[in-house]
């Protein structure tokens, strides 16, 4: 559908186009079943950042204060990238394994559901 506008051919500026982010891609991360983190987190990542940096630096910095964090069995973690099952390669860059601008990466950590299994 198209907007009904006073002016024929009305169109607006795409405010979040990738060119506006100084070479970064906005990337969203979300730890499932842990809603004490109220929403997915948004980051501006360089597309050639290796997935390993996300794993070793980003995730522990922003999720590490949760009591479940230390108990994650990383071999059992399930990932999806933009709704598709995903097996990350720590050595490869984000851009070389399916990420794009405004991708959403979700991960499930089996057996961990926050305090009293409240999904917090």
């Amino acid at each position: 559908m198209a907007v009904v506008a006073l002016k024929d051919g009305y169109t607006g500026e795409v405010r979040d186009r990738v060119e506006n982010f100084h070479g970064n891609w906005v990337t969203y991360l979300h730890w499932e079943d842990h809603l004490s983190f109220c929403a997915a987190l948004a980051f501006p990542f360089p597309p050639d950042m290796p997935f390993g940096a996300l794993l070793e630096e980003v995730l522990p910095t922003y999720y590490g204060m949760h009591p479940d964090w230390a108990n994650i069995d990383w071999s059992a973690v399930r990932w999806t990238l933009d709704g598709q099952d995903f097996t990350p390669d720590p050595a490869k860059a984000l851009k070389d394994q399916g990420f794009h601008h405004k991708s959403l990466l979700r991960f499930w950590t089996p057996g961990l559901k926050g305090p009293a299994d409240s999904c917090s």
């Binding site: 907007v3 169109t11 607006g12 500026e13 979040d16 982010f21």
Partner: peptide, 17 residues
């Protein structure tokens, strides 16, 4: 009405820009 909402001034993205 995508032509309208592609213009959303989303504060988080504006910070990153």
């Amino acid at each position: 009405e995508p032509e309208k909402y592609v213009q959303s001034w989303l504060p988080v993205h504006q910070i990153y820009q």
